[in-house]
Design a protein around this nucleic acid. Structure first.
Lengths: 250, 250
DNA sequence: CGGCGTTTTGAAGGGGATCAACGCCTGTGG
DNA sequence: CCACAGGCGTTGATCCCCTTCAAAACGCCG
């Protein structure tokens, strides 16, 4: 499972290892359909059978890879805790950030079609990930139609979100890009039950810039500018949203 | 079925009508699973049952809408013939082109999650579309696992393509955007069995620009420039690719 | 303390948007 | 038949937003 990995990042990154090698939570947890459906934000259905505890948890340290480019597609990964970035490596080897999935997001779908992941997902913090072996998805779908719908729904949600982001990123100015990025983050934190007013970025200006199609200096400049305008407060990587409406209208 | 439609485009656009109202091919065609799987580019499996001829065809004239924003999600649409644009309408009412799906592409997936389509798909030419009622997808998946895989595969393909396009569109210069757009078109035409060297754009410069995140003038300028460099020939909307390699390297 | 990665801020340059004018083609109506 | 209008495409001139290059402050960890 994921034995080969290119350690080309600047900061410390480790080969993903079997769960038993991870010290912090050494014991392996298992989740059932009910928990998985809840995470996917889909009507929870009690399944009669012994399909509970069918999904293995793995734990990753910050910097470890969930899956790498060209790795054989095998699982879908459902994020239970922690923060992740998904990147695409272009021909010159530099990485373009595609998104920052977090709790409740399903990643790895893009590898199904070609049976290999075209992207790479890296843990930005310690992470708890639920493995969903794709081979079992069809089988589970037959047992539990609600699960099938949950998977379809998650894929649809991902596609719609990707489309909306792409549209926004292409047509907006730098100020607006950063503004909407912060608002989107705020809403995601709110949906997870955290504060929507204040949160901590898990990423560098460089990574935000790569995601938004901006130079890291531009990200820094826009954050300073929004701070001067009184729309946000910036303290290192902690952002406080002070004027939601004006931020949205940028 | 799709009775309401906002006729706000500048050129003639019509309300989508029932197939029986369409004069050119007045008779309704039906496709079976085999044909649908072939279109989806998935290993074709002969299904034993009477599930053949389970999918209705509809025909649209150029300018008609396949589905509109906010319309209740009901079908997936598989393009059998013709050209389509999918657009997102922003708050100001102006449209942002998300893609140009064509034969073999599955559209409408993005409406599943919220049960309403967030986007609008417009026929750019006369089109033949196969309706796939989503209610029947789960049922068919149980009858024919290959069909289920085909749907999953199509969704995955769509997501991966969307990701790759978004990454490219954000980080490249105008020249490179147009170059890659033409190459992508060329490959799609090749996959459909048409010439990859010469083809006709079904879209205006305006629509290309919206898709690529460029002003229509920039699209025109780049096309002229690529023409001067001898990489392509441009005659109105007919493009001939003369130097594939140099075009790719832009 | 000293090195490194991150972040901030400044100055200069370029690429694309914007505004504007003109040619081309199609469809329309006198 | 021809004039005219309107959409589409091309090309030019100007401006400005963002990138790039550069330097320095900051925080972190050895």
């Amino acid at each position: 499972l994921n034995s080969g990995s290119a350690a080309t990042t600047t900061n410390s990154s480790f080969i993903q290892s079997a769960p038993s090698d991870c010290n912090p939570p050494a014991e392996t947890l298992w989740s059932g359909l009910t928990e998985v459906c809840a995470l996917l934000n889909v009507p929870v259905i009690q399944v009669a059978s012994d399909a509970n505890h069918a999904f293995q948890h793995i734990y990753l340290r910050s910097g470890q890879r969930i899956h790498t480019v060209e790795q054989t597609f095998e699982h879908l990964y459902l994020i239970n805790s922690g923060y992740v970035k998904t990147v695409l490596l272009d021909e010159s080897g530099s990485e373009k950030v595609l998104g920052f999935p977090m709790r409740g997001d399903l990643i790895g779908i893009d590898g199904l079609h070609s049976r290999r992941y075209p992207t790479e997902s890296v843990a930005l913090s310690d992470c708890g990930i639920i493995l969903i072996p794709f081979k079992r998805v069809g089988w589970l779908g037959r047992i539990c139609p609600e699960f099938e719908l949950a998977i379809y729904g998650a894929m649809s949600r991902e596609l719609a979100r990707e489309q909306a982001m792409a549209a926004m990123l292409i047509s907006l100015r730098a100020e607006a890009k950063v503004g909407r990025f912060l608002i989107a983050l705020s809403e995601r934190y709110a949906a997870m039950g955290y504060s929507s007013k204040q949160f901590t970025l898990q990423v560098t200006r460089q990574e935000i810039g790569s995601y938004l199609g901006l130079a890291l200096e531009s990200v820094s400049r826009v954050l300073s500018e929004l701070h001067c305008l009184g729309f946000i407060a910036v303290d290192k990587r902690t952002i406080t949203i002070l004027d939601y409406e004006n931020l949205r209208l940028r």
